[in-house]
Write a protein that binds this DNA or RNA. Sequence first.
DNA 1: AATTGATATGACCAAGTGGTCACATGAGGT
DNA 2: ACCTCATGTGACCACTTGGTCATATCAATT
Lengths: 215, 215
Amino acid sequence: MMQTVLPTFINLPAAKQEKIVAAALAEFADKGYQQASINVMVSSSGIAKGSMYQYFKDKKGIFLYIFDFAISLVRRTLMQVKETTQEADFFTRLEKSLLAGVEFIRQHPRIYGIYLKILFDQHVPQRPQLLKAVRQFAAEYFQSLVRQGLERGEIRADLPGPAATFLLDALFDRFLQATCVPFFDVTLGLDQAPPAEIEHRVKELIDLLRQGLAS
Amino acid sequence: MMQTVLPTFINLPAAKQEKIVAAALAEFADKGYQQASINVMVSSSGIAKGSMYQYFKDKKGIFLYIFDFAISLVRRTLMQVKETTQEADFFTRLEKSLLAGVEFIRQHPRIYGIYLKILFDQHVPQRPQLLKAVRQFAAEYFQSLVRQGLERGEIRADLPGPAATFLLDALFDRFLQATCVPFFDVTLGLDQAPPAEIEHRVKELIDLLRQGLAS
DNA sequence: AATTGATATGACCAAGTGGTCACATGAGGT
DNA sequence: ACCTCATGTGACCACTTGGTCATATCAATT
C-alpha cells in the first residue's frame, strides 16, 4: 500500500519498533492525522526527532505505516471470527461477530480510534484508498454472511442483498461507536456498560433485525 | 448555550453578519474545530483579524455561535417535518423523514459537515454538551415516532422501544453519511446518486425494517 | 588503533497558529 | 470646528508545527 518506511526502521530491535509504533498509534488515535504532533510522538517514545526521519520519509509515511499495521490486525481478527463461526446459523453468526467487534475495541481502542478519526477527515493522505479498503472489507464480510444465510434458507429468499448488507453495516458500526464514544449513544447507554448488558443489547437488536418492526 | 458573541456583532448589518457566518461555517465544516484557521475566515469574509475579536471573544466563541446557528436550523426543519407528516402511518413517516434529511443535507452540506467533524473529535470545546444536544434531539424524534406507531398498532406491541430507536438512529445517520461522504458507502453507491435511486433505496431499507430479515 | 559507513541527535528553519494592541477611522453631538 | 466614543485595522507576539542538517556516536572491519 505504497509504504514509505525506511529500511533503518525495519532493522531496529523489535522493542524499539514497538515503542515507536505505540506512541504514533496513540497520538494519531487521539488527534487524527493533521493534529497529531510528531514532537509528541518522539518525546513519548524517547527518541530524537531526527531519528524519526531516519525511520520514515515524512509524517505521511508514519501514518501509512501505522494504518497498515492497524488494518492488517483487523483483517486477521475478523477472518478468524468468520472461520470459527462457520457452522453457526446466520443470526448467531451476527451475534458473535458483533461481540467480537466489541471485544476487539476493548483490546485495541486506539486502532478503532484511528478509524473514527479518519472517517470524515478530507485531509488525510490517501483517504479514498484507505477508507475504501476498510469499508469494502466490512461490506464483503457481511455479504458473505448474507449469501450463506440465503443458501441455508435462514433468511428471506426475496431479501434485497445490498440493502441488507447496508443495514447490518450501519447497525454494527453504530453499535461499536456507541460502546466506546462517550455521550454518543443516549438511548441504550452502551458506553462503559457491563458485558452482560452489552450481550443483552446485542441479542435484542439482532432479534429486531430478525423479526422486523411491523405488527 | 453559554454564548460568547459580543454585542458588536449583533449590531452589524445583516449582510456583513451573513458573510462572516458563511465563512466560519465553511471553514469549520472543511477542517473541524482545531484545524480551522481564523486567518482563513477573516480573509475569505473580507474583514480584519482584529475585527473578528470585536465580534467574538475567541475561537471557541466563534465556533459555539456557529454551532448554535446550525443546530437551531436543524431543529426547526425537523420539527416541521414532524408536523407535516403527523397524519401519515409510521413507515411513511420514516420514509419522509429520511428523505427530508437527504434534502436538508443537499441544501446545507456544511452544517452536516460540522456535525460529522465534531462526532469523534475529543478536543472540541463543550463537546459533551454539544454532542448530547444533537444526539438527544435525534433520539427523541425517533422515540416520538415509535410511541405513536405503537399507539396506532402499526408496529409490534412487544417491540423493545429503546432498541428500535437505536436501530432507526443508526440506519438513518449512516444513510445520510453515505449520501454525502464519498467512498464511504461501497454497497449502495449512494453518494451522488440521482434522487430517483435514493428514493428507491429509502423505500427498500424501510421495507427491510418493516419485514425483518428472517424467512 | 585507525578507518569507515550507518545511525543518533537536537539546535535550527520557515511557516502558520490564536490572540493582542496601539492606532486609524468615522459618525453624532455640541 | 471640535470632541467623544464605538468600531475597524494589521503589524506584531509567543508558540507550535513538520522537516533539515551539521555533527556526534557507535559498531565493524582492516
